[in-house]
C-alpha cells in the first residue's frame, strides 16, 4: 500500500503461544439456524485442508479455524498474545516434529490463527509451542488521521492495494462489501480480540438466510458497511471498517465466517475498490525459514 506511515517506529515483541486443543462439552451438540442439532469440528487444534485463498464456506465444520489455533496458558499472557498479534506476523514452531517450520498470522478468533505450508502443518499438533513475532499495533497512517489501524502488520500494510489517492482518500482494494445486516456475534466486543462473525453465509441453507456472502474466501480483504471498529465493534452509519476473513464455515446461528478488523474510519475517508485478488493468498506473506519480518 502506497501510504506514509510510522512502520519505522514500531516495536516487535516475541510472544510464546501453544497450539490449543479443540474443546467440547459433554452435551456435544449445538444448534443450526433451522433448530437442528449438529456436532462438527472447527475450533482449536490444527485444522488441515483450509488455507488462505480457499473458500470460507461449505465445509462440514463450525467456526472453522484454518491452520493452527494458538493460545497461552496464563490468562494475562494470553491477552498479550491475542491483542498484540497482527495479521501477517511471522510465527515459528519451536517444539515437536515441526520445530523450525514457519507460518504467519491470519487473524484472531479468541485464538491466534496461523497458516503455513501443508507439509509442515500436518506435523504440528496440540501442545506444540510457537513464537509469534508480534508487530503492528500502534501503526499510524500519517495522511489519514481519521483512519484507525489495528491488527495489521507492516508486511500486510505493504501488501495491501492501493494507497493514498490524489484527493486524499485511502484507496483499499477489497474482494467483497459486507452489509450491516450480516454482522453477527462479536458485535460489542473489543476489536483487538477475536473477530466479527458474518451471518448470511450459510451455504446450502435457506434463501431467507442469505446475504450473498457464500462466496467469501479465507484471507479475503473485505469492507464492512456502517461499522466503526476503532474502539470496539459497533454499528455506525457512514463508517467503514476494513477486515480480513480469518475464519470459515459456521453452522451455529448468528455466527459465520468472520473478518479480523484492520482499519476503521468515516466512509468518506476510504475509496473502496472491488478487486478479486484482494486476498492474503496473493500477498506472499509466508517467509522462508530463518528470515525475520
Amino acid at each position: 500500500m502506497n501510504v506514509a506511515s510510522n512502520v519505522d517506529r514500531l516495536l516487535t515483541q516475541v510472544l510464546a503461544g501453544e497450539v490449543w486443543p479443540p474443546l467440547a462439552d459433554r452435551n456435544g451438540f449445538r444448534i443450526d439456524p433451522e433448530g437442528r442439532a449438529f456436532f462438527l469440528p472447527g475450533m482449536g487444534g490444527v485444522t488441515l485442508d483450509v488455507h488462505v485463498g480457499d473458500p470460507a464456506t461449505g465445509y462440514a465444520g463450525d467456526h472453522v479455524e484454518p491452520g493452527l489455533s494458538v493460545r497461552h496458558r496464563d490468562p494475562a499472557a494470553n491477552y498479550a498474545l491475542q491483542y498484540l498479534s497482527c495479521i501477517g506476523n511471522r510465527v515459528e514452531v519451536t517444539s515437536g516434529p515441526a520445530k523450525g517450520a514457519a507460518g504467519f498470522v491470519i487473524g484472531q478468533h479468541a485464538y491466534v490463527l496461523v497458516d503455513m505450508d501443508s507439509d509442515d502443518m500436518r506435523h504440528v499438533t496440540a501442545g506444540d509451542q510457537v513464537s509469534v513475532f508480534a508487530v503492528g499495533q500502534g501503526l499510524v497512517l500519517h495522511d489519514h488521521p481519521e483512519v484507525v489501524v489495528k491488527n495489521c502488520s507492516p508486511a500486510l500494510l505493504a501488501a495491501l492495494q492501493a494507497g493514498t489517492t490524489s484527493t486524499g482518500q485511502l484507496e483499499v482494494h477489497v474482494s467483497a462489501v459486507v452489509p450491516p445486516e450480516a454482522i453477527g456475534a462479536g458485535a460489542g466486543m473489543a476489536s483487538e480480540y477475536a473477530n466479527t462473525d458474518l451471518m448470511g453465509a450459510y451455504a446450502g441453507m435457506g434463501e431467507d438466510l442469505s446475504l450473498g456472502l457464500e462466496v467469501l474466501r479465507v484471507g479475503d480483504v473485505v469492507a464492512l458497511t456502517d461499522q466503526d471498529h476503532r474502539f470496539g465493534r459497533g454499528y455506525r452509519e457512514n463508517w467503514t471498517t476494513i477486515g480480513v476473513i480469518s475464519t470459515a464455515s459456521c453452522l451455529l446461528y448468528g455466527h459465520g465466517p468472520g473478518p479480523s478488523s484492520i482499519m476503521s474510519g468515516p466512509a468518506g475517508a476510504f475509496k473502496v475498490v472491488i478487486d478479486d485478488s484482494a486476498n492474503l493468498s496473493s500477498f506472499n506473506l509466508g517467509q522462508p525459514r530463518g528470515t525475520r519480518e
Binding site: 451471518m199 431467507d208 438466510l209 448468528g254
Partner: peptide
C-alpha cells in the same frame, strides 16, 4: 424486523 430469535438470535428475512 428480520431477526429470528427462536434459539440464537440471527438474521432472517421476513421474520
Amino acid at each position: 424486523s428480520d431477526l429470528d430469535a427462536r434459539t440464537n438470535a440471527g438474521y432472517r428475512r421476513n421474520w
